[in-house]
Structures are given as structure tokens and as C-alpha cells.
Design a protein around this nucleic acid. Structure first.
Lengths: 313, 313
DNA sequence: TCGCATCCATGCCATGCGGTTATGCTTTGC
DNA sequence: GCAAAGCATAACCGCATGGCATGGATGCGA
């Protein structure tokens, strides 16, 4: 019963009363406390009375035309400072986060963004909001989405090919927020001197008979789709995740390849290759995946803003 | 501006939100938090939304069909424990006081109560409520009242004579609470063998020619009043505050005296004296003086109750 | 001793906070 | 594909909470 009474009391304690008692202890009168709190005097008077009725605990006693705190009142006033201190500490931290003087963003992005997009993003974010801490992890889109879902990341940068079979932004990203923030051209990579390199824009069918060097599984799937649309089935000679290796292979004349812009921009252009846009101006789309409502988190919002400004260049 | 925003935030923080966030952090869902708090699920949902609208701070983000706390939410949850701890400490202390397992009464009483009434009072109070601490100071009524007014005492036991000129319970006790709790007979003290001692009840006029031994100034004033009512002017031979000395003087035949019952009960009865009621059954009244509303303080209420039971015997 | 200023309590009223129930939407698991 | 889980929204409502006006008691000073 003693425990129950304490719990009941703790539930009956409200901040208003605590604040009022604190001011009364400091100023010695209801009127002064009311003024300090920006309330009218009756408001404070009633606040006290309500608390006393609710809890059966007398906080003030009258003496002359004034009042003074009872023992209980003084006890509450003493603890009021502890409560106020804890609340102000919380408010301080929250204000820091809201004002972007503190905060944290855990970023995940696909590998080819690591060399170009992500560094620029982090730099822009750091310049605008030095107080925000950024952590970055590299992961392919499906894993990146999983990281957001599992609360291992706040923000995932992913891509998807048009008509992607297991599009990470359809089934697997359900329950999350996906926003497209740009498109990335897909380039045809040819060995220098390749006949098709003569024209500024190359139709895929023009290299339908060449051997192909394919990238990651999903990139490979995309290649198959584009080739089918162009009317051929690519003969895939090699597969590798490593863009630099792809460029080297193409330079050696081992085949041709499709590479997204960011992958090409990640390293100095290999001298033995030529880059050409595809005739159909193929692109893959870039996405931002977050928990729904995460854009209301200041650090996340700032990151999105920074990403949009970076992506625009 | 940063400070202002912190202050604004601290003012916008309310216990309900803190409690809600705390439960969400613990249980991981609104529904579970609502159940833990004894609320319906929409109540918790709206509580959160209101806070977020009020402060512009997002506390939760949605993921799938559930939610999770944002960084701000976790910050608040962390501080929530500190707040809850402080509140529970306050509630605990208040519950102790309310349940009379703790508390304090500062008692003041007039000297002749020190030997009889007060010890019995303190004993009764201590037996009923061992947790309540009692302090006691001896003071004449005017000083006792002043002590209550100046917050040096919670409860003053005083007396007043009927028609007292500067009645401590009229002018000087204004703004305080005065309650009569009993009357104390005034006895005539005669040397053994005094002729008037032959009758069980003595009219004052029967000893009008005797020399008198007077007590404290206010007692002396009372003596003069009673004598005047009986038709004589007392010849005052000695004055002393000390009741025991009064008894000794009377025993030596130096005069007669009026003494209140409590003063007589304070020491073993002197063998050389005789006690007689006065013909008019004179009494002085006993009072309890407190701050107004002090009876709502548990320890004070318990003392009053104990005093009433003690005074009844 | 008689105003006058001070301080708190009270009555009345408007507002909106904070709760409820009912219901719908999205996601997830079988 | 359907049922269950989980949150949001809408409609409604009680009363806590604050304001204003006023009254009563006290204390101070002329």
C-alpha cells in the first residue's frame, strides 16, 4: 500500500505544481510567484488548491495576509530543483539537435557513390552544420535498405534500374520512405579505336556482337534487359564488381561494358577507353530511403538538403 | 537565442510526454506504451503528435507498421529516467509525510505545561507515530505566538485568562489559527491549617486580608481581576514565576496564592499546603495556536489529535 | 484608529488539453 | 489473400486551467 501510494503520488505530480512551488519557495508569495511564471495570481492559487485536493497534501499554510510553505511544500520545492535541472538538461540536448548544433546521421550508400557523391555530400553537410556527426557505411541497395529498416542507418542512398525485377524500392522497402533524387546516365564503355566510338551516340545494337563485361548481379540483369530491347543477347565474357577492373578489361580489348556515370567518375579516366552515351539515353535512378517521417529529424533533413544541392551539380 | 530556445523547450516539456516516451523506449510500440500507462492507444498517439507540433521536434518515425524513436526521442527517453527518479523521490518523501511515517512538529508551550501536559503529549504522539520528530521549546504565550508567526514553531500551546487585557489570542494572534482545547481550573493554595481550608470550596473574599504571593505578570493581572470581583484589593507580598517556590512560601505561611492546575501537578504536592477550588470555579482557557491551515499538515493534525486525547484525561 | 495598500480566495466564464470510442489504412505473417 | 497487428484520424466530451472581477482579511502608516 505504501508503494501504491507513492506511485499514485508520482502520477499526481505535475510540472505546473512543481514550478509553482519552486517559485513560491523562491519569492515567498503567490503573487510574486505568479508574476515570475507569467500567470495571474488566481491561477497560481487555484493550481495549488487543485493539487492539494487531488493529493490531500497541504503545500501552503496561511499566516497573516501571506502564506508560507508547509514542510511538504518545502520538500517539494527542494525536489523541484532536481526535476527542473533534469528537464533543462533534456531541453538543452533537444535544442542542440533541433538547432543542428548536434545530431547524427548514419549514412549508407552503394559502392560507386563512395568515391564521388558521398564525399561531396559529407563535405557539404559538414560545412553547413559542423555539429552534425556523420557515419558512413558502404552497402548495395538491398542491404542498405535493410540497414535502415533495422535501425542501423538513418539514410540509405540507393539506385534502381528501370524495370528492376527485385527493385529494392518496391517490395523490400515497404514501410519505408523512398524518394527519387536524381538519375544517373548509363554509359557505354568501349576500347579506344572501337569502330562504334566514331559516333557521338551509340546504339547498343551496334555492339551487339562484342563480348561483354558485366558488373554486379543487378547490373548484369539490366544489361540483359537493355540488350533484349535492342534486339540481341549479349555474350558475357567476364563479370566483376570492380569498376576499375572493368575499365582495364575494356582497355585491353576484352570486351565492351555499360557503366553508370558515378562509377566512371570515381577514378581518373583510363586512357585506353572511350565513353559514349547510349542511343536511348539509358539511366538508372537514384533514391533516398529513410524511415517514414525521418525527414523531420533535423540532421536527416539537413542531409537531404545537402544531397539535393550536391546532386544538382 | 539559444538560451531562449532552451527555456522555451523546457517550458514545453510536459510530464505526460516524458512518461510516454519513456514507455515507448521500454516497450517499443505505442500500443504497449499505452497499455503500460493505462491509456488508450490513440491517447498516446495524440500526445506525441501534440508535442511534436508544439516543439517542432520529431520523437518517433514510422517503419513498417510500427514506430521507433528518433534520436531526439531517445535523448528524451534517457532524460526521462532522471526526471522520473526525481519525481519518485519527491513522491516518496511526500508519501512518508502524508502517512505520518515522517514529519516534524515544532512545539512551543508555556512553562507550567512542560512538566505534565507536554511530556504526555509527546509520549502519546511518539507512541502513535514513531516517525514524527518533535521538538519542544518553552515560552510564555506571547512569545509562543510570535514563534508560530515567525515560522520558528508549528504549534503553540498557550493559555489566556478570561478578560485578559492583552490577550495573545486577540490582537497578537491575528492571522493565525486559535482553537481552545480545554480549560484549567485555578486553585487557591493555602497553608495547611489556614482557617479557610476548613471548607471544601473557598470564596476568595474569605482570604481577602491575607498577604498574596503572585506569579507571572499576566497571572498577577488575573489575580487582581478576581480579587476585584470578590470585593477586595489583594496585598501582594511576593512575586515569583516559580511555582515550586510559591508552594514553599505558602507552606511557610508567608501568604496565600492562586495557581493553575498544571502548575500544581508539575511537582509532588508540598506537605505544608492545602489546595482548594475557588467558589466561582475560576479557570483559565488553554489554546492551540497554529498557522491557518496547519491542521492539514499530517504531523500537526496528529499532534492536535494527541493533545485532545491527552487533555481529556 | 481609520483608511489604504497588500495579499490571497472565490465565483464565473471561455478555452482547449487530453482523454474516449469508432474507424480506416498499411504492413506483415500464415 | 486474408486475418492480425499497429498506428492515424475523426468526432466527441469532460474538466483542468487560465483570465477577470471581486471580496475578505491583514498590516501599515498617517
Amino acid at each position: 500500500m505504501s508503494d501504491a501510494s507513492i506511485e499514485g503520488l508520482a502520477a499526481a505530480l505535475d510540472l505546473q505544481t512543481v514550478r509553482v512551488v519552486r517559485q513560491i519557495a523562491e519569492h515567498g508569495s503567490l503573487t510574486a510567484a505568479a508574476e515570475a511564471l507569467g500567470y495571474s495570481q488566481p491561477a497560481v492559487s487555484q493550481q495549488l488548491r487543485r493539487f492539494e485536493e487531488r493529493t490531500g497534501i497541504a503545500l501552503v499554510e496561511r499566516v497573516g495576509r501571506g502564506i508560507r510553505l508547509t514542510q511538504s511544500g518545502r520538500v517539494l520545492a527542494r525536489h523541484a530543483n532536481a526535476v527542473a535541472t533534469a528537464l533543462e538538461a533534456a531541453a538543452g540536448e533537444l535544442a542542440e539537435i533541433r538547432g543542428l548544433r548536434a545530431g547524427r546521421v548514419r549514412l549508407v550508400a552503394f559502392p560507386s557513390a563512395s568515391a564521388t557523391l558521398v564525399p561531396r555530400l559529407i563535405a557539404a553537410l559538414g560545412a553547413a552544420h559542423p555539429g552534425v556527426a556523420v557515419t558512413y557505411v558502404e552497402a548495395e541497395p538491398p542491404e542498405a535498405v535493410a540497414a535502415v529498416r533495422a535501425d542501423r542507418a538513418d539514410l540509405a542512398i540507393t539506385f534502381s534500374y528501370p524495370g528492376d525485377r527485385d527493385d529494392p524500392h518496391r517490395a523490400s522497402a515497404r514501410g519505408l520512405d523512398v524518394r527519387a533524387f536524381g538519375e544517373e546516365p548509363i554509359r557505354l564503355v568501349l576500347p579506344a579505336g572501337h569502330p562504334a566510338a566514331a559516333s557521338d551516340v551509340v546504339d547498343l545494337s551496334a555492339v551487339g556482337d562484342d563480348p561483354w563485361i558485366a558488373g554486379c548481379p543487378r547490373c548484369r540483369g539490366h544489361l540483359l534487359e537493355l540488350a533484349a530491347a535492342a534486339g540481341f543477347t549479349p555474350r558475357i565474357a567476364f563479370e566483376t564488381d570492380n569498376f576499375v577492373a572493368v575499365e582495364g578489361m575494356v582497355a585491353q580489348g576484352l570486351g565492351v561494358a555499360l557503366l553508370p556515370d558515378l562509377a566512371l567518375a570515381a577514378s581518373p579516366r583510363h586512357p585506353g577507353i572511350v565513353i559514349r552515351p547510349t542511343a536511348r539515353a539509358d539511366v538508372r535512378s537514384l533514391h533516398l530511403v529513410t524511415a517514414r517521417g525521418a525527414e523531420r529529424v533535423p540532421a536527416v533533413a539537413a542531409t537531404i538538403a545537402a544531397l539535393e544541392s550536391v546532386a544538382a551539380t
